[in-house]
Amino acid sequence: MSRSESMEALEAKEEQLRTLVADLAPEQRKRFYVEQTKQLKDPDTYAALNWLFLGGFHHLYLRKYSIFSVEFTLLIIAIIALVMGFIYAVVILIAISLYELPQLFFSQKIARQYNYNLSMQIYHDVKAEATIGR
């Protein structure tokens, strides 16, 4: 997912996907929308998790487990180091905050890109099932 992609480009890709889905057979279209409804993520929830919790909990929401693990581990290390009196732990906290800040500002786009990629995967899965079923 690229933050450099413009919203107009993302919207064009979403519109192209809507056209592809509209061309599906009715039972395939229904399957697509059922699966999509189950799996789509709310951009506002992603933004709220990013805003409220330092430590990468918003990554869990988008199933980015490895990024969450690294970020949460760094947060725990920084907290333990602060408790032990190591002032340099503040540098880790600042680094985590600086890493998180752009994700907060671009949270709507990040979640929409995730949803687009997920929808494309569902579309391809539905098309493949129809091909295999023939």
Rank of each mutant, 00 (worst) to 15 (best):
K30R: 15
D44V: 10
F68S: 03
F53N: 06
K64H: 08
L75N: 11
Y123F: 14
A130C: 07
L20Y: 12
M84G: 06
P43C: 09
A81L: 14
S6E: 07
Q103I: 02
I110L: 05
G55N: 08
Q16M: 05
N117G: 10
L52W: 09
A78G: 07
A22C: 08
E129N: 09
M7T: 12
G55V: 11
F53Q: 06
A78N: 12
R3H: 05
N117I: 03
F105H: 02
V34H: 06
A111S: 12
T131S: 11
V34M: 08
F72C: 15
P102T: 02
I96Y: 10
Y33A: 00
L82C: 11
K127F: 01
Q113I: 02
E5W: 04
M7A: 05
K30T: 15
D125N: 14
A128M: 12
L24H: 06
L20M: 12
Y99N: 15
E129T: 05
P43H: 07
K13Q: 13
W51G: 01
F72T: 14
S69H: 01
S69A: 14
A9L: 05
Q39T: 11
W51D: 05
E5V: 03
S107W: 03
Y123D: 08
I132A: 15
V90S: 09
L93P: 03
T73Q: 02
E15P: 03
L20H: 08
N50Q: 14
R18N: 15
M7P: 02
I110M: 02
Y116I: 03
Y88V: 01
V83G: 07
F53G: 10
G55W: 07
R112T: 06
V91A: 14
L93N: 06
A48D: 12
E71I: 10
Q108F: 07
A81P: 09
D44N: 13
F105S: 00
Q121W: 04
G133A: 12
L74K: 00
I132V: 15
I77M: 11
E8Y: 01
A111I: 01
H124M: 06
F106Q: 15
A89F: 03
L24E: 08
A95S: 02
N117K: 12
S2K: 13
S107T: 04
V21C: 12
E35C: 00
A78E: 09
A12K: 13
N115L: 05
Q113T: 04
I92P: 00
I132F: 14
D44G: 04
Y99Q: 13
R63C: 10
I76G: 01
I92M: 01
